[in-house]
Design a protein around this nucleic acid. Sequence first.
DNA 1: CAATTTAATATTGTATACAAAACTATAATA
DNA 2: TATTATAGTTTTGTATACAATATTAAATTG
Lengths: 226, 226
Amino acid sequence: MNKIDDPLARSLQAKEILKRLRTDIILGEYKSGSRLIESKVADQLGCSRAPIRTAFQLLSQEGLVLNLSNGGTEVIGFTSKQAHDLFELRLLLEQKALEQILANRSFHFRPLFESMEQLEQRLSIPGNAPSSAETSVLDIQFHRSLVMMSENSPLLVAWNTMANVFQAILEITNMTSPTYQQFYESHRRLADLVIQRNPDSISELRHHIANANEIIIARLEKNMKT
Amino acid sequence: MNKIDDPLARSLQAKEILKRLRTDIILGEYKSGSRLIESKVADQLGCSRAPIRTAFQLLSQEGLVLNLSNGGTEVIGFTSKQAHDLFELRLLLEQKALEQILANRSFHFRPLFESMEQLEQRLSIPGNAPSSAETSVLDIQFHRSLVMMSENSPLLVAWNTMANVFQAILEITNMTSPTYQQFYESHRRLADLVIQRNPDSISELRHHIANANEIIIARLEKNMKT
DNA sequence: CAATTTAATATTGTATACAAAACTATAATA
DNA sequence: TATTATAGTTTTGTATACAATATTAAATTG
């Protein structure tokens, strides 16, 4: 449970391809229902079909693409409703994680604090605002630490799958530092409540996520084509 | 939302390999922490590395295997606790689906009844008890129909991912027809409550799943090596 | 002209080849 | 001896080749 599952860690090409396709699909660059042809995409991106296949499989896992029963891959459009449902799912999973954390006898909270302080430190460097990509990674890391604390492997697996899409959305919406300032203050309150094993942490979490979701979805809708 | 996502539908080899590895890992044939070598497995199963890589990726998606950061694939043991957590997750997701179904104005319940009647019909053929593999597919299909009714794509994606492991467990535990008789009676009660949009359907669902989980886990533990 | 069959094309699934990276074991050095 | 270098091996990631299946277009038939 300590090692981190990082698909494509060594597969730089597939990683890059996946990221690009994921973002494009979320933004609506591909029409819903249109078909993704391995060789076409391979030519466009200037590589062979091998890493493309890998990327397609991951996209399918994330629900952005559909594996047709006769072979082939079809784009599933990403709508505003889906974003909403995704965020609701995130809340459901994280709340479950937190409930289990509170119910467990002992737990390790170091990773939670480390990830929190990493974000705080990064934000506190004067005159050097972090990029949206940077902060999204750190923000996600905090929440991943929380889910990992639950020591519930299936829950973590489910969370990780949707987290990829979630992180892409965070990057797209290009959060500014002031917004993140809000977020990390909420992270601190939450982390403090968690180590106290205070049941109020649940409502703090619900508050935090609901608030974040509202801001993010509003920004996302402006960027989406459809 | 109408098309069904079936990875490996055309890829028979990879499908077979995945199924076999999945079952073996659940049963504890591979030691937790041991490394899966593509070429080794390919030689054992008498095929090339291509379908093996595909299968490994799917296993990773299901949380049975870990992608090491320097490349390579490590087996994550499947413990009794994980089974318990998995089943709890299943309940969480299906309950969420049902809540959304009840909240929605209109919904299509044909697939739910069709899958239910398929199971009933199959069980009612005298002197021809269905195999565990057969019934597990039909049972899973009923629950998938339920989740699909929620028209919540991210929720369905998450459910599908864990359903693969769940179905494998159903097959392993080799349910007998009498047990299934119980299950499908519960299915019918549940389906009836759902079309009435009766909130009691939620407790019926909780009951059904909790009951099934208890039976299944007990049987599973007898089959697991660890 | 509509429907069906047949041929041509496109696309995927698997096998193989090769290069880059990671791991292992041996040798060298302090 | 313990530690670092180094050579050798293993293993993966990507590219390419080929065969089987799907899709599309054309031809045929009623």
